[in-house]
Amino acid sequence: MNNLTITHIKEAAQYILDKADSKPEIGLIMGSGLGVLGDYIEQAITINYKDIPHFPVSTVEGHAGELVIGTLSGKTVVLMRGRFHMYEGYEPALTAFPVRVMKELGVQKLVVTNAAGGINTAFASGNLMLIADHINMTGKNPLIGPNDDELGPRFPDMSEAYSKRLRKIAHEIAQEQQLALQEGVYAGLLGPSYETPAEIRMLRTLGADAVGMSTVAEVIAARHCGIEVVGISCISNMAAGILDQPLSHIEVMETTERVKSQFLALVSTLIAKI
């Protein structure tokens, strides 16, 4: 946990609970351009990250930097509009700190989303991909350092990082909505530079279907503390070398805007059914 302790977690959670009317049961982490889901939360209470004790601050375009608590699809949820990345200079334990706070708030299930580059050539920009598994290529882990047994075991099992049960529900919803939901392996890299074509060829050889700069530390921390996880990537662009064009964050934002309605329908129904 590095310099973060259970005391810090409890202080952050208590600050949030003092503002909220009820304890959330489901947590949501929204990636670049995907925080629009927060607009659909009813009886919403919004808290700026900078006001929460020990919380870092998001510095990336498309990440609003606020916590929203309220009702979505009949469930009490806590939603992060924007997340923290190691490329911003934060240690992995700090990028995963909000997940710890969610657990302290009462969250049992976590929906984690991201914008990702497509590696699988069968994918196209604008596809949604259910994350079946991940490859941690960051060289870092949020569990490095002394382990607090009150938070979770020293050596947590990661054989089912992304819940098979929740993935099955997501596929059933996609079928009902006639949505072509892909499924694949997400490779998490440190960033902030996009990958080279050679790195993309390497990742494809390793079995990755999509690549991004987030998610893995949050999911490791979630599984460490016993939260069930489902992950969805928005394939915002095809990765380097697949198409003969440069990559940009502007394209990421444009694509997430284009698939907004499909994303909202899938996630809001998923919340209702889990």
Results as ranks from 00 to 15, higher is better:
residue 263 F to G: 00
residue 240 A to L: 14
residue 237 N to T: 12
residue 57 V to I: 14
residue 230 V to N: 07
residue 174 A to V: 09
residue 94 L to I: 14
residue 211 V to F: 03
residue 254 E to C: 02
residue 173 I to P: 07
residue 133 D to W: 08
residue 213 M to R: 01
residue 253 M to I: 15
residue 256 T to F: 14
residue 210 A to N: 08
residue 226 G to M: 02
residue 37 L to K: 05
residue 23 K to S: 15
residue 214 S to M: 02
residue 78 V to C: 14
residue 96 A to E: 05
residue 233 S to L: 06
residue 188 G to R: 02
residue 210 A to E: 09
residue 39 D to Q: 07
residue 207 G to F: 07
residue 82 G to Y: 01
residue 259 V to I: 12
residue 222 A to H: 13
residue 181 L to G: 07
residue 160 E to A: 00
residue 9 I to T: 09
residue 41 I to G: 04
residue 128 L to C: 04
residue 109 K to N: 04
residue 171 H to N: 11
residue 215 T to A: 11
residue 6 I to C: 15
residue 217 A to L: 14
residue 264 L to Q: 06
residue 5 T to N: 07
residue 209 D to R: 13
residue 272 A to D: 12
residue 38 G to K: 01
residue 198 A to W: 04
residue 138 T to C: 05
residue 234 C to R: 00
residue 105 L to W: 10
residue 105 L to R: 08
residue 167 R to W: 14
residue 43 Q to Y: 15
residue 37 L to R: 07
residue 258 R to D: 06
residue 38 G to W: 02
residue 176 E to W: 03
residue 91 E to V: 04
residue 118 G to W: 11
residue 5 T to Y: 10
residue 22 S to Y: 14
residue 149 D to G: 14
residue 101 V to Y: 02
residue 153 P to E: 07
residue 95 T to W: 09
residue 209 D to T: 13
residue 83 R to W: 01
residue 124 A to C: 03
residue 130 L to S: 15
residue 176 E to M: 08
residue 235 I to R: 01
residue 151 L to C: 06
residue 246 P to E: 15
residue 32 S to L: 06
residue 169 I to L: 06
residue 220 I to A: 08
residue 175 Q to V: 15
residue 206 L to V: 03
residue 151 L to P: 00
residue 28 L to S: 10
residue 119 I to H: 00
residue 25 E to D: 15
residue 73 S to A: 13
residue 101 V to D: 01
residue 189 L to E: 03
residue 252 V to T: 14
residue 50 K to Q: 15
residue 249 H to A: 11
residue 59 T to N: 06
residue 123 F to Q: 00
residue 38 G to L: 04
residue 220 I to M: 14
residue 47 I to G: 05
residue 257 E to S: 09
residue 122 A to K: 13
residue 216 V to N: 01
residue 120 N to W: 06
residue 7 T to K: 11
residue 193 S to T: 12
residue 27 G to M: 12
residue 238 M to G: 04
residue 109 K to H: 04
residue 168 K to D: 12
residue 21 D to W: 11
residue 13 A to Y: 01
residue 267 V to W: 11
residue 256 T to M: 13
residue 25 E to S: 15
residue 31 G to V: 06
residue 129 M to C: 07
residue 102 M to I: 12
residue 163 S to W: 03
residue 6 I to Q: 13
residue 54 H to W: 03
residue 147 N to V: 00
residue 218 E to W: 09
residue 99 V to R: 02
residue 184 G to N: 01
residue 120 N to Y: 04
residue 171 H to D: 12
residue 161 A to C: 07
residue 155 F to C: 05
residue 136 N to H: 04
